[in-house]
Design a protein around this nucleic acid. Structure first.
Lengths: 205, 205
DNA sequence: TCTAGCTTAACGATCGTTCGTGAAGGTTGG
DNA sequence: CCAACCTTCACGAACGATCGTTAAGCTAGA
């Protein structure tokens, strides 16, 4: 369990970074938002960079946890490719919407990381990419996805999900549940999902 | 025609903003990159904000010019919806790739604009959105696009195109021409483009 | 007594901006 | 023709403010 002060600090930094961007954010504002003095912040984090690093790490942890949970819910790695891709798209869309500030920092502030920290972050980002790549390739191998461009389709699906953090609003006309469903459908459309017909088609009209 | 010093200034600011972000960018660095003193910069632009504003305006001008040219090439507003959407997707993809720095500033630095300048920018952004919306709705009306979710499909297409500015590299494995073709195909897949069969199908096998 | 948690005060650096100056060049009035 | 004047473009120096960071010390609980 994290100390309460540390949580307040992370939350304050998240808001400040998301609103102004890392460069324009001031650690004095962050400390004030967290209800503590500037130097108290230094008791928990050794500087502005480490604050960003902690935010990115924590955001990644949460994201992977969300996707893993959704993947397990549909049966894990043994599930059908369409179900796995659907789970990843659903979890990602939901995460971008429910954690917009977190997501925007993850997506936009990569360039503010110092080189050695960027390396670690890039590794985790590659892991996130393969969450989409694996089921798409499995679907193509299984003959259920027919897109001729799996790489570009994957990038398209990821971009569609990520963009949610920038436009979706809880008080908007579209509920999150509806959006998630539509994104799953659109993703399957993009990879040209057409399930193989069973040789013994049962109960046809 | 813009003075040479002004062009050098815009180019320098574009690089600096794209690399570090508006907040972390220093106008001293920008002036140095442009090969002039800090005060000389103030002769052309009244401050950091106006530099950003000029960049965004110039970027928007160029983007609309690119799309308009591509639209005219396929026949303008009278062209078939699929051709119009294809033209917009092609022009946008190409612009994001060929003007990555410009595009990233357009896409990421909106939040650094002061309120009154943001208003103008948002208006132009809405115009850009309707470049995609109009042909998609025309395609649905014409019975050629069958997606049940035109709004989300539009957002997906736009996000796919925009993401190009963040990942495509000229020295990568994928040529720009090939990427443009694939994006057009993927966009038409996403809106579920299925051209109406002619009542008088000619020359069928 | 020790330490975790927090304070105020201050450091040097850099920030965006402003000021005063002046060289160069064209324009105008006599 | 010349002198006065204006505009354009550029410079170095300095402004006050804010930046990230550090130092030294206080306080309460174990």
């Amino acid at each position: 369990m994290r100390p309460a002060g540390q949580n307040a600090l992370l939350e304050a930094a998240r808001q400040e970074f998301a609103e102004r961007g890392f460069g324009s954010a001031s650690i004095r504002n962050i400390a004030a938002r967290a209800g503590m003095s500037l130097s108290a912040m230094y008791h928990y984090y050794s500087g502005k960079q480490e604050l960003l690093h902690a935010l990115l790490d924590e955001g990644m942890d949460r994201y992977f946890a969300s996707v893993d949970a959704e993947l397990q819910a549909v049966g894990g790695v043994d599930a059908a490719p369409a179900d796995r891709l659907g789970a990843v798209v659903a979890a990602t869309t939901r995460f971008r919407a429910e954690h917009a500030a977190r997501s925007n920092i993850l997506l936009l502030e990569e360039r503010s990381l110092e080189p050695e920290r960027l390396e670690r972050y890039s590794r985790r980002q590659a892991d996130a990419t393969s969450l989409f790549r694996d089921p798409i390739e499995a679907g193509i191998t299984a003959g259920e996805f027919h897109t001729p461009y799996p790489d570009e389709a994957r990038r398209g699906v990821i971009a569609m999900c990520n963009a949610v953090a920038q436009w979706w609003r809880a008080d908007g006309p579209l509920t999150l549940d509806a959006l998630v469903d539509r994104h799953v459908e659109l993703a399957l459309t993009l990879v040209e999902y057409r399930p193989r017909r069973s040789f013994a088609a049962r109960g046809r009209a």
